[in-house]
Each structure stands twice: as C-alpha cells, then as structure tokens.
Computed example of a mutant assay.
Amino acid sequence: MTNTLTVPPPENEDTDQTALLARLTDEVSGVLESMGELSDYLERVVHAVRRAVDGCDEVGVTILSKDRPHTAAYTTVQTLEIDAVQYALDEGPCLEAARTREEQLVADLCSDDGRWPLFAQASREDGLRSLYAVPLVSGDQCVGALNLYAWATDAFDGFDAALVRVAASRCADAVVAVTALDGMRELAGQLEQAMASRAVIEQAKGVIMAMRGVPEHDAFEILRKTSQDRNVKVRVLAEDVVAGVLRGSAAPGGAGA
C-alpha cells in the first residue's frame, strides 16, 4: 500500500510557507546547458531540500540509467549507506518510486506494512524511522527518485510534500533535458565520474569537522557558502582545503584555504 500526503491550500499568499516554497523553487530552478553542470545542480537540490524540510535528516537523488540505479547526489555518507542497502537488496522506496512512478511514504518503519522487508529490517537497525521517495517524472519519462530520510517517526507532512514535489519536478526536467542532448550513456559515465570526485569533498568536510568541531551537515554548509563567496566550485574549494592542511593553512572562512 502506498501512502500519499495531501497539501492544504495556503490561507493567504503572505504565509511563511508560501515564502519557503518560493525560495526553494528559486534554489532548484535553472537551465543546464551541458552534462557537466548536472552533478553540481543535483548537489544544490539535495541540500536545498534538506534545508527546506524541517523533519528531514538526509536527502539523496537516485538516477536510473539502463535500469541500473546510481546515487547522483547526497547530503552525507549516511544517505549513501541507506541507498546502498536498497541497491544491494534490489528493494526499497527509491527503487519502488522510480519503477512504479508512485510516491512512497513510510511514517514509521517499525510498523511493518510488508513493503521491502529486508530493507526495512536493515534500516530499522540503523535507526531510520520515516522516509519519503518521489519519482522524477518529466513528460513521459521517469529517470529516478528524490529520497528523504529521517530518524524520527512521522517526519513529513502535507506541506513537505508540496516542497518535495516541486524539487522533484524541476530535477526531473533538468535530467531529461541534458540527457536529450548527451544521451543516457553519457549520463552514466558522468555520474560515475562525479561520485569519484566526491572523495575530495568528503575529505574536506572531515577537515572542517575536526578543525571547527561542527557536524557533517554544517561542514558542507561552510564549504558551500565559501564557494559562493569566492565564486569557485565546491569541488575546487575542497581540493584547496585538503591541500591547505598539508601546507598548514586554515579551513574555509579562516585565514587560508
């Protein structure tokens, strides 16, 4: 059984919710001109969604290329771990959403409803409690799913659904647009290359976490904001951070990097 979230209409256009929806829409908008821009765009999407949805702990994007799932963007390595379990078992919300084109919502993973029994058992042991997966549909194509995970039960409500659906729609349009230009084979190669380049970003986050005493999400926010301030890509800044440690320089926002 697939649960769905309904969205109550806002009472007036000046509500905080309306402003939040407008801000998220702006963050996930944009026209991609090449496959090379896709990875950075998807990274922007997952972090924007996590900031917008209060109850959400982790966000990832699963892309299906020739029916093979790839995690194209994620907020922290915990997202990767949850996705990896689904891919290994060939069951779970992100795969179900991508394959059926239907939203998958679980309010409490401890309340066994019979879906994905192996994935549910493994994820419960790791503390996952609620999840929400929305298919990435553009026109007649479904290219994957946008996946939200939370450690609390009942983490997502109707307004959260409105936010996620907007992000999923824009994300799907972006993927379909670039694959129309460069093809799905190029997409698969691009995703694998992007995941390889994430290693230096994870190293840089580790440096910032150690030097600043901040959690992983905050470490990425420091990287993201500094990259915007300096007008450089996050990946390039991360390389500078790691190199700066070897030189004895400071982390982003300090004297060096």
Rank of each mutant, 00 (worst) to 15 (best):
P135W: 02
D173T: 12
T15F: 09
Q228A: 15
D90I: 09
D54M: 10
A194W: 00
K225Q: 14
Y41R: 06
A167L: 09
F159E: 05
E102A: 13
E11Q: 10
C94K: 06
T153Q: 13
L148E: 02
V166G: 03
Q104L: 07
V236S: 08
N231V: 15
E13S: 10
I63L: 15
L38P: 00
K66P: 00
Q141P: 02
I208N: 01
R101H: 07
D154P: 07
A97C: 14
D182V: 12
R129C: 06
S29C: 12
A97G: 11
G189D: 14
A255Q: 15
F156V: 03
D140W: 03
G158A: 10
T75I: 05
G60Y: 01
C110Q: 15
P10K: 06
S138H: 15
Q78H: 08
R165G: 10
A161N: 07
V214P: 01
F220G: 00
E96V: 11
L24A: 06
Q141E: 15
L131T: 08
L148F: 09
A133W: 00
L187T: 00
R101K: 15
A177D: 14
E102R: 13
A174W: 02
D113I: 07
E81H: 15
N231Y: 12
V242M: 07
V134P: 00
E43F: 04
A19H: 15
E192F: 10
L21G: 10
W151P: 00
F119M: 10
S227K: 08
R165C: 02
L128N: 05
V164L: 05
C94D: 13
G60K: 01
V166E: 11
A180W: 05
V45E: 03
D67I: 10
S111V: 15
D240V: 05
A145P: 02
L131I: 13
F119H: 07
R99V: 11
P8K: 13
D83Y: 09
L89Y: 03
R170A: 13
L131P: 00
L181C: 08
S65E: 08
R51K: 15
V137A: 11
G127C: 03
V49H: 01
D173E: 15
D57Y: 03
C56V: 13
A145R: 02
V137W: 06
A107E: 14
E27M: 14
S130V: 08
K225C: 11
V242E: 07
R230S: 10
D54P: 07
A72N: 05
K66D: 13
R101L: 11
L109G: 03
V31Q: 14
A162M: 11
V31M: 14
